Computed example of a mutant assay.
Amino acid sequence: MEQIKKLLFIFVLILVSSAQELSAQISPTNVQELMSYFESHIQSLDPIEGVYDVNIEQWGENAYQEFPSETTNLTMLVYKNVNGEFKVFKNDQVTIKKIGNTSVYNYNLFWKGSNVTDSKRFVLKESTFFDVKYSIPDRQLRYDMGRNYQAGFKVHFKCSFIKIYPTVDMYINDIEDENIKNPKEWSGTGFALNNGYVVTNYHVIENAKSISIKGIKGDFTPKYNATIIATDKYNDLALLQISDNNFKGFGSIPYNVKTSVSDVGEDVFVLGYPLTSTMGDEIKLTTGVISSKTGFQGDVSLYQISAPIQPGNSGGPLFDSKGNLIGIVNAKHKDAENVGYAIKTSYLKNLIESSISNSILPNNNQIAGQPLTGKVKNLKNYVFMIICSK
C-alpha cells in the first residue's frame, strides 16, 4: 500500500512541475512574461490557452481490489510556443494538439522511462473547461516499480480542468475596448452645399473605406454613397460629394454661408446627430452663445461656443440667430462644462476655392425671419448623418 501511495505521489509531482507557466507563440522565460502576453493578446489566443485550476483524482487497483482514491489540486498553464505547438510551461511530458478548426483536442502524455506516448481526446467546453481520463501505461509501471511490479496493477487519473485566466469578463471587456478604440463603423454629422457637396470634419471620415449619407430631405431609409473631394487635416475639414445614381439633389438650400467673423455674445445653435446608439436618429438641437472668437489655446481658426456638443456632433453646422451658417462643430473641451469649438466658415471657403473651380456655397437665406422652431424644421432636411466604416 505504501508503495502504491509513493508511486501516485510521484506522478502528481510530474503534473505539478508541468503546470507552472504559459505563452502564445513566444518563447517564455517566466510566469509574469506569459501573463502579460495573455493580457495584451487576449483576442488572438487560442481558446485552449490559459491558466487552469486542475482537480486530479487518482487511484490504483490490482486483480483483487481497488485502492482508495486521493485528490490533488494544482495550477496548469497552457500556451502556444513559437512552433505553433500547445505546451505546458516547464514540462515536456504534456503536449496538446488541436483537431482542425474545432473545439476538439488531443491530450498527449510522453512517458520517458518507457518511451511511450499516450493520447486522449477531449472537447473544450465553452472555451473554459474540459476533462481527461488516463492510466499509466503498463510498460511505464514496470519501468518505475522494477522488482516491485505486480501483474494486473493499474494506476488511473481523472483530471478536471477549469480555466481561471483570462476570465470571461476579460474577453468581453477586451472586445468592448477594441470596439471603442477601433470601431468598424462610426458616424458624425454633415451638411449640404450646392451641387451635391457635403461638409464634415476630417476626423469623421479619417481612415474610412466607405462613406455614406443618411437623412437627406429628412428621409433616413436610403443611404447615399459619397466620395472625398478635398480635405484640410490641419483645420479638420472634409469636402464630400454624393456619388450615387439614386441621388436627385438637395433642392433649394435655405441658408447662407457667412464668412465674416461673428461677435462674442451672439446667440447660436447647433444641429447634429450625437450618440446615435443611445440617443437615436432624430436630429438634436442645442443652443448657446459665442463665448470667444478664438478656440483652444487661442486658436484663431475656431469659435468657442457654449452650446453643448457630444460625440457625433462633429462636422455639424453652427448657425447664428438669423440662420446663417457661421461654423463647423469639431470638438468639445473634456475638462470644462459647455465649452465647445467650431471652425470658422472662412476656412471652409479657403478649402473650396483651393480644390474646385465653381462656387458651391449657398447664399440665399430663406429663414431669417422665422422663429427657432421654424428654422429647425427647415434646416433639418439639410443636416445629415455621415456613416463611415472600415
Rank of each mutant, 00 (worst) to 15 (best):
S301T: 06
G113W: 00
T200F: 14
S292M: 10
S346M: 14
D232M: 05
E337M: 04
Q304G: 12
D53S: 14
T95G: 03
F269L: 08
Y234F: 09
F384A: 10
T287F: 03
T117Q: 15
Y105H: 12
G295Y: 14
V339A: 02
G369P: 03
I253N: 09
R142E: 00
G100Q: 04
D281Q: 11
K181M: 08
E176F: 04
V94E: 08
Y52H: 04
K258C: 12
W186R: 00
S355Y: 09
D232S: 04
D138F: 01
D232P: 13
A238R: 03
K5S: 07
E57S: 12
P68T: 14
K98V: 03
V123W: 00
S291Y: 07
E61S: 10
I356A: 08
F319C: 11
Y37R: 01
N330M: 04
N365F: 07
I328N: 11
I253S: 05
Y143M: 01
D177G: 00
D46H: 02
D46N: 15
L239Q: 13
K6W: 01
G146K: 12
P47K: 07
K293A: 04
N330F: 15
K133S: 10
K258Q: 13
G327A: 15
D335L: 09
V123H: 00
H203M: 04
T227N: 14
L45A: 07
V94I: 14
D219K: 00
A336V: 13
H156Y: 11
M170Q: 14
N381P: 01
Q140D: 00
L141D: 00
S355H: 10
S277A: 14
P317K: 07
Q366Y: 05
V268M: 00
K377M: 13
E49P: 02
K184Y: 08
K125M: 05
S103G: 08
Q150F: 00
I356V: 12
V264S: 07
E39Y: 11
K214A: 15
W59I: 08
D263I: 04
A208G: 05
Y52L: 05
K125S: 04
A307L: 08
V16D: 15
V376P: 08
I172V: 12
F157G: 02
G218R: 10
Y303Q: 13
P362L: 03
N83S: 10
I164P: 02
Y273A: 14
S44P: 03
K380D: 09
S187G: 05
T231M: 03
S212Q: 10
Y202R: 00
F220Q: 02
M279L: 15
D236T: 09
R139L: 00
A19K: 08
W111G: 01
Y79L: 13
